[in-house]
Write a protein that binds this DNA or RNA. Sequence first.
RNA 1: CGGGGAGUGGCGCAGUCCGGUAGCGCAUUCGCUUUGGGAGCGAAGGGUCGCAAGUUCAAAUCUUGUCUCCCCGACCA
Length: 489
Amino acid sequence: MAQKITKREKDYSQWYLDVVKEAKLAEHSPVRGCMVIRPTGMALWENMQQGLDKMFKDTGHENAYFPLFIPKSFLSKEAQHVEGFAKECAVVTHSRLKAVDGGVEVDPESKLEEELIVRPTSETIIWDTYRNWIQSYRDLPILVNQWANVVRWEMRTRLFLRTMEFLWQEGHTAHATEEEAQEETLQMLEVYRTFAEEFMAMPVTTGVKTASERFAGAVETYCIEALMQDGKALQAGTSHFLGQNFAKAFDVKFQDSDGDHKHVWATSWGVSTRLIGGLIMTHSDDQGLVIPPKLAPTQVVIVPIYRSDEERESVIEYGESIYNELKELDVRVKLDTRDNYKPGFKFAEHEAQGIPLRIAIGPRDVAKNNVELARRDTLSKSFESRDGIGDMVKNLLDIIQNDLFETAKKRQNEMTFEVNSYDEFKEVLEEKGGFIYAHWDGTPETEELIKNETKATIRCIPLNGDTTEGTCMVTGKPSKQKVLFAKSY
RNA sequence: CGGGGAGUGGCGCAGUCCGGUAGCGCAUUCGCUUUGGGAGCGAAGGGUCGCAAGUUCAAAUCUUGUCUCCCCGACCA
């Protein structure tokens, strides 16, 4: 504490790290590239989990759990998949250590016959299991989700956005028909969009990835892309149509009602703790974190202000009555009675942690039957009557939730551009950043060229975008629609 | 793996060029005063200066070796 947060315009990455640190969300661990999620960060993730989990259940899914370790041979069964993940796997080769002069070393005798891979994602181990679960069309669909941790041996890491180990959810479904699997893929994309926008108040664009950005082993990868305050895009969630690739690789067949044996159709979809990074970079300011009320572990904090013991007693009693009233209405409220910190310190701390609403009460308020209400998002303060505080708070939390989305949406609109030439593209990218819509000829070569020359990538081919035809800004070849470019995290 | 930088109390750093026996801010502990926007004053505790060897009367500082971490690129939810 007692630190000031770096200004956003001064150094965006330092600002981001300051916010994470000051909000006590997470910190670097002694293990390279990994992070420790602190209780405050975990509480936020738990709320996100809860929201997502309910949406999964509402769409017919169930939770299951599969092993952390994957036999090496499993990974090699789907060619694209192995190519995509082989370069970033943690491999377990031995099963024990032995003591050697005060230290320990790996016991060479314990070498495993087949190495185990710490899951980078669970398609392989799950599809190996599904083979046994599926015989008949009556066994389908399988609609399973798993909350888990995965490990990807990344070169460079950043708290929440890219860590070697991260927490996520991965859904893995099996279907009798292609159409049904396609529908599932799009349904889950829509679940993610809804969660991002309605819970996180983070506007996103939905679309399809180009072949080069596609998930290893997928036929089609759909995604939600969000825009951060520094003008860079963040891939916030993906939903993959896997076709029959994994069913063929793991020989998963079912006998259909017509008697034929067929390979099943698959999807997988996931979001991770990266969403927390997205949340921070969407709403937070130079005072610290801003959390939308729906996800905030604490929605309202009451800060009592007093000098003498007599004042303390009456102010806290007043605070407790407000606390109880809000508690009755299921508002997640805290009364900050810590005696060893001054109000100013508490204000700053709660702001850094992003608590949406603060109620400050002192002797003056007790006398006048008032409260001071302060909104975290706008940092505005107002005096209100204590009577009817419950409804007022409930109402205000809804307004804050809504305003956060509107503000973020407006900013995203202001940072979204359409260009018609490559020069214009480079100019906008250089001077403004943000989302840029432009025509592209559909070839990986042109995509690669643009990436190499400008660092911008095609974030997605928008699903509900403008489908006016045109010509590629680089090659002049025909283009079916403008696609979404941006520099990204 | 290529290019840069850094290792000094819990955290962040100064000191290194030009050797003289370790200091600052924050945090911690105690006391008093404070409490409507990150408190003030006084006192206290805490460091084999990454590791190893060498030069020297004397090394955080010079030499050599070695280890680790961070940043920029290739990779990526």
